[in-house]
């Protein structure tokens, strides 16, 4: 019995045989190697992506650590600053006290020295005054003696002239 439309089982099987060969060949020659390459490239980029993510995570971790360290360092700096300021103020007070004491001592020494000098100067002035006075008195006395003697002599001469 003839099959309509010239359907031939023998040729159908030949077509199947041909198609199976083609599909197998295309699988081994094209599909499989291209797919493997695509998967390899995907794996490569996934690896790069995960590596980048790991690096990013470690960078974030490092950043966090650095931030914590910075905070700690800031805190330490703050503590040291407070301590230094306290020490500085203590030292300043101490230094000021020392300076004040020194100044007081200098002033008292200066005062004593000045008084001594003043006394010495006054003594010296007194001696000078005395000597000057003596000199002046001597000079006064000398001048008056000479004048009196001269006056006497003048008077005597005038008397002798008058005949007295």
């Amino acid at each position: 019995m003839g099959i309509p439309l010239n359907i031939d089982w023998h040729q159908i099987l030949l077509h199947l045989f041909n198609f199976i060969i083609l599909t197998g060949g295309l699988y081994f020659l094209l599909y499989s190697p291209i797919k493997k390459f695509i998967e390899k490239r995907d794996a490569h980029y996934r690896g790069m992506d995960s590596e980048a993510n790991e690096k990013l995570d470690s960078a974030r971790e490092l950043e966090e650590q650095a931030r914590e360290r910075l905070e700690k360092i800031d805190q330490e700096i703050q503590e040291k600053r407070v301590k230094a300021e306290a020490e500085l103020s203590e030292y300043t007070v101490k230094r000021m006290k020392e300076a004040q004491d020194k100044a007081d001592k200098l002033i008292s020494d200066a005062k004593a020295s000045a008084n001594e000098e003043k006394r010495a100067i006054l003594d010296s002035v007194d001696k000078d005054i005395i000597s000057i006075t003596k000199e002046a008195a001597a000079k006064i006395l000398h001048v008056s003696t000479d004048e009196a003697y001269s006056q006497f002599l003048d008077t005597a001469e005038r008397d002798e002239g008058d005949g007295k």
Partner: peptide, 19 residues
């Protein structure tokens, strides 16, 4: 059927060359 064999042959040769 001859066309089918020819197409298969050509495609496999091209695929082999590409491979």
């Amino acid at each position: 059927l001859i066309s089918a064999f020819t197409v298969t042959g050509i495609l496999l040769i091209i695929a082999l060359a590409i491979r």
